[in-house]
């Protein structure tokens, strides 16, 4: 097990290195760099461009150096915790992202909890009451959730929240708190605003998870080991919890790896619609304006999340499933 752990951690290093190369290539792919975009923009506004200042900028950011040196500088910076400089915001990337990252984490975490809390009871009910009226009703609801475009749902819910509860449109908090320091009022305001994006972002995932849990559990419910458990005299509820449900969990645990980055990046459109101060819209902007270090940091951040997520789900699987833990080294 320890050997597996070490091998698993070591394997993450080349993976991340490879991803960093690809990321760097991607952010360098569009012709020109941030400065050329800037020049074009200034010229279109009729402003004069100070060639001397441009050259200075070019030198500070190392744009005149060969590509591989630029990459190494970027990589070395990241290892030291220096993610580069955002041209658009004229601030270090870390400062630009800072607050937004925490709010993103809050939204994401709330969404994950929402997805699990809603889909598990429904999925278990649907599987154990297959083809009952309740199963059909919940299935219909689930498909509606899958089929509704999330930005549409966002607009509807924003409207309703405003009409019924007087919640301000958009954002994660009331406008008066935006630049205010953290206080009880601000936290309450965040909580008040949070449920709409959480429901919107989580609906599709919830619906999908209900369907998958139902299918997985149905597969397991008729397995001989479940009959064995009943034949022992185990009450139905405990027999369900201990055996088939645990078997049905495996696919969900292996899904954690995808969940983390998906919630961060997949919610970009919804975040734009709802003008949430999360990282999604910022990633979109930075890619558009060729703010390369900001975009690069984002992409790397997502990659690291994926790699860590997969690592966590592998560990959790090994912990929960002895077949993986104990036969890891053998082949068939």
């Amino acid at each position: 097990m320890l050997g597996y752990l070490i091998r698993r951690v070591l394997i993450m290093i080349p993976t991340l290195l490879a991803i960093s190369v690809i990321t760097f290539v991607i952010i360098q792919l569009p012709p020109g760099d941030y400065l050329t975009t800037l020049v074009v923009e200034m010229q279109s506004r009729g402003e004069s461009v100070d060639q001397g200042r441009l050259a200075l900028l070019r030198e500070t950011y190392g744009f005149d150096r060969p590509m591989h040196e630029q990459y190494l500088i970027w990589l070395a910076g990241m290892l030291r915790g220096d993610f580069g400089y955002s041209f658009e915001y004229n601030l270090p990337v870390a400062d630009v992202v800072g607050d937004r990252l925490w709010l993103t984490a809050v939204v994401s975490f709330a969404t994950i909890i929402f997805v699990y809390a809603v889909s598990f009871p429904i999925g278990i009910y649907s599987a154990t009451h297959q083809y009952s009226a309740g199963d059909y009703a919940l299935t219909l609801l689930g498909f509606l959730g899958l089929a509704t475009p999330s930005f549409l749902l966002a607009l509807v819910l924003l409207y309703l929240a405003n009409v019924w509860f007087g919640t301000s449109i958009g954002g994660l908090m009331d406008p008066k708190y935006v630049d205010a320091p953290w206080s009880l009022g601000k936290i309450l305001s965040v909580i008040e605003h949070l449920w709409v994006p959480v429901v919107v972002i989580g609906t599709a995932g919830t619906a999908a998870m209900i369907r998958r849990l139902r299918a997985n559990l149905l597969d397991e419910l008729d397995k001989p080991y479940v009959v064995t458990a009943r034949a022992k005299g185990l009450p139905p509820g405990r027999a369900l919890w201990k055996y088939p449900l645990r078997m049905a969990l495996n696919p969900f645990i292996s899904d954690i790896g995808n969940l983390l980055p998906q919630v961060v990046s997949g919610a970009a459109i919804v975040s734009v619609v709802m003008s949430l101060p999360t990282t999604g819209p910022m990633l979109l902007d930075s890619l558009r304006s060729q703010d390369m270090y900001l975009a690069g940091s984002f992409l790397m951040f997502l990659a690291v999340l994926t790699v860590i997520g997969v690592f966590i789900s592998d560990l959790a699987l090994a912990a929960l499933d002895p077949r993986i833990r104990l036969s890891g080294g053998a082949t068939r």
Binding site: P224, G233, P235, P236, R246, P322
Partner: peptide, 28 residues
């Protein structure tokens, strides 16, 4: 699924099945 039946089942009357591969839980 009542208590009297569950007491009999596995306590006074037991069963073994054909497939020893699948009738034991692989996770326990």
């Amino acid at each position: 699924d009542g208590q009297p039946m569950r007491d009999l089942r596995g306590g006074r009357i037991s069963i073994i099945f054909q497939e020893p591969m699948t009738s034991l839980s692989p996770l326990h």
